[in-house]
Write a protein that binds this DNA or RNA. Structure first.
Length: 471
RNA sequence: CGAGGCGUAGCUCAGUUUGGCCAGAGCGCUUGGUUUGGGACCAAGAUGCCGCAGGUUCGAAUCCUGUCGCCUCGACCA
């Protein structure tokens, strides 16, 4: 066996790093915490950005590009914001062989750059809203890093919008959250809990932070996309004001939201199995691979090529005529998570057939070549459905309700989310964190609270909340 | 940043305790041939400043000091 992958049951963390290496998604670079996205890994990201970019443009978001560097004085203007990012900031202190008079921060996020720009270009209510986004990479000096999950440099999109009214901004925060949610469900086949972060867990400088909270196969949580409502918190500091319809001066209301290469970690850990990646068809760099069983036999090569030519404009498809054995290729494309493979061998050529094999279920199916297109379409649909439902089942089976502190303690060993009521007090959240090792994941948007008490302090509860271990 | 583990061939590792026939194995890679419906086989090859820098010693992969990097678990974060 050439490519050994640690099994998920033996060591989930090792399995994860094995998979990303064996599937050739990343390689480690010579800079600590910075990884190289290899062609196959970057292709996944390109497919993700392609879909998300389209969704954003559909609702009127425009792409821009902000500088990589932020002057220290600018970054320091909003107090909560710099506090949140201070420890993980990377600084440029030298340029052109000279010490700089002011340090420049390599952007950890671009709120302040957008703010300072907005303050320049906004004058009238007619200029609003501005719905901006940029695709870029940012740097956060993380102490420990793991590819896709947490790295010093990572790629993402960061959206920044300003609106004339708080209500409109808040609504937009939720619009984006729902856009992310649709993307996770429809494109990535990943289930999630939509919710609001607690004060403790929210973004540095935000008034409210909303999250797409996903559960990995091992029961741990991954905050996979976020959307923040700022109100006028930044607008005040950066003086982003405008004249409203009554000629009164007014501050804008603001949002920001982001989705990073971390979603690739989610894809790996939600769908993957002991044989490697299982990629959702819509973002798989190779959706179909054709494997000829005897690539040197002319009739097989010819038939395979014919199939390839017929499908190549409909799907992202690869024809592998290399001289590896079929068994080697089967395993190789399974590691890489290719959703469907087409086998064409001597028996098939005789009947003008081929064999379709699904990555997610391993199901094999004979198919007449003339019916391929139709069969592939339905198979892709099935795969999409199956991936989502399987992941949903796993998540739901790992959400445990607890009514008391003792029940919470009893549920600790199972791995997953614990759902309780909560009084809203930070001390209770702190206690759960310190004594149970669980952080609050989110307060669900679909809050079904009627009445009850907080299991930590016994006082009246104001919300439902999910607890869990997170990546 | 705290606790632990690890750096030897492209990869996985043996060798380190007890310094000296100790530069090794398997996989991969190259070439040729036979194979091919679940990671094929045979033959012939190529590949190393033993992470890096100092030190101890007649002699260091092996002992000492420093340093860099990686992994796991905490803390912190998307």
């Amino acid at each position: 066996m050439a490519k050994e992958i640690t099994s998920t049951s033996e060591d989930f963390n090792k399995w994860y790093t094995d998979v990303i290496k064996k599937a050739e998604l990343v390689d480690y670079s010579c800079v600590r915490g910075c990884v190289i996205l290899r062609p196959y890994g970057f292709a996944i990201w390109e497919n993700i950005t392609g879909v998300v970019d389209k969704l954003l443009k559909k609702i009127g978001v425009e792409n821009v590009s902000m500088p990589l560097l932020i002057p220290e004085s600018l970054l320091r203007q909003e107090k909560d914001h710099i506090e949140g990012f201070n420890v993980e900031a990377a600084w440029v202190t030298c340029g052109g062989g000279k010490e700089l008079s002011e340090r420049l921060c390599v952007r950890p996020t671009s709120e302040v750059l957008f703010c300072s720009h907005f303050s320049q270009i906004i004058e009238s209510w007619r200029d609003l809203p501005k719905l901006y986004n940029q695709w870029c990479s940012v740097v956060r000096w993380e102490k420990t890093s793991r590819p896709f999950l947490r790295s010093v440099e990572f790629h993402w999109q960061e959206g920044h919008t300003i609106h004339s009214e708080h209500e409109e901004a808040r609504e937009f925060t939720i619009t984006i959250l729902n856009l992310y949610a649709d993307f996770f469900r429809e494109t990535l086949c990943i289930p999630f809990i939509l919710g609001k972060k607690t004060e403790k867990e929210k973004f540095a400088g935000a008034k409210e932070t909303y999250t797409v909270e996903c559960m990995m196969k091992d029961g741990k949580a991954l905050q996979s996309a976020t959307s923040h409502f700022f109100g006028s918190k930044f607008a005040e500091v950066f003086e982003i004001n405008f004249r409203d319809k009554n000629n009164a001066e007014k501050l804008v209301s603001q949002t920001s939201w982001g989705l990073s290469t971390r979603v690739i970690a989610a894809i790996i850990m939600v769908h993957g199995d002991d044989d490697g990646l299982v990629l959702p068809p819509k973002i798989a760099p190779i959706q179909i691979v054709i494997i000829p069983i005897f690539p040197k036999r002319e009739e097989i090569l010819k038939k395979s090529n014919e199939v390839f030519e017929n499908l190549k404009n409909l799907f992202r498809i690869k024809f592998d005529a290399s001289d590896h054995t079929p068994g080697w290729k089967f395993a190789e494309y399974e590691v890489k998570g290719v959703p469907i493979r087409i086998e064409i061998g001597p028996k098939d050529v005789l009947n003008d057939e081929c064999v379709l094999v699904r990555r997610d279920t391993r199901e094999k199916k004979k198919c007449f070549i003339k019916d391929l297109k139709k069969n592939l379409d339905t198979m892709f649909e099935d795969i999409n459905k199956n991936l989502y439902l399987k992941a949903l089942k796993n998540m739901e089976s790992r959400i445990f309700k607890a009514n008391s502190w003792n029940e919470m303690v009893d549920l600790l060993g199972y791995g997953g989310f614990i759902k309780t009521l909560w009084c809203g007090a930070p001390v209770c959240e702190e206690k759960v964190k310190n004594e149970l090792g669980l952080s609050s994941r989110c307060m669900p948007l679909k809050n079904k609270i009627t009445e009850g008490v907080c299991p930590v302090c016994g006082k009246e509860a104001i919300t439902e909340i999910f607890w869990g271990k997170s990546y």
